[in-house]
Amino acid sequence: MNIIVCIKQVPDSTQVKVDPKTGTLIRAGVPSILNPYDHFALERALDIKAKTGAKVTLLSMGPNQATAVLRLGLALGADEGVLLSDRAFAGSDTWATSYALATAIKKIGGYDLILCGQMAIDGDTAQTGPGIAYHLNIPQITFCESIDASGNQVVVKKLIEGGHQILEADLPVLVTMTMPPDYVAKYPSFMAAHKAQDKTIHTWTAADIGADPSKLGLNGSPTRVDRIFPPPARAKGEMFSGSAVELANKFVEILKKESVLK
């Protein structure tokens, strides 16, 4: 079985601030990490590898620095990596990005299962995975918390409003993964990190994958980000404690004070 896991390097969003004046992200001193959803998807791919001996190929698009997340994936146990790196890709929205990734996946070829994180924490769009499935014209299952693959099939647990579904699908299929709240990401041992240096990372340009330049970058992107802004700060709530009667009285008193009740 051949599994391709799409991964992205993102700024550690727990440390990113938005400049309220310019609406741009303050990236100074913010470390880059592997998108946590992708990290989870990769670990599930490696579980399948452990069980079935599948080959796991990592695919990422980004500048050269994105090699760091490919190395992390290789250190965790993936077999090889592909980095799409070219100025032609710069400025791509989710549509152009999924076109580029799908084109690269066609070049890698022979895939059975494509795993993506549900979304990247720097954009929260959740569109790239489905976009890839569209461009490859294969089925997709999104928002899955677990996956098991054997033979020619996958079984997934897909989260839905108020519960979950257990779904089966034939290969090839694209699955996007979301992690349970108690998920703790695995990191490689020092020796594994060291050995990952000897694994191959291919760097491909737009020309290498035979992508149509008009479908890449800003030209190939039908959407534009107008502006980014943090939600306005909400006034701090006031907490009261006491018996039900005291609290009800307090509540009425405040509503009167605020002229909601007369």
């Binding site: 760091a68 190395r71 992390l72 990191y187 490689p188 041992s189 990190a193 240096q197």
Partner: peptide, 23 residues
């Protein structure tokens, strides 16, 4: 085997930091 490069060093540091954070 090659000497550890900067990416590998950073990977090791990340693993150490994450281990400490969790344990």
């Amino acid at each position: 085997m090659a000497k550890n490069d900067l990416t590998t060093r950073n990977l090791m540091l990340d693993s150490l930091k994450q281990y400490a954070k969790n344990r």
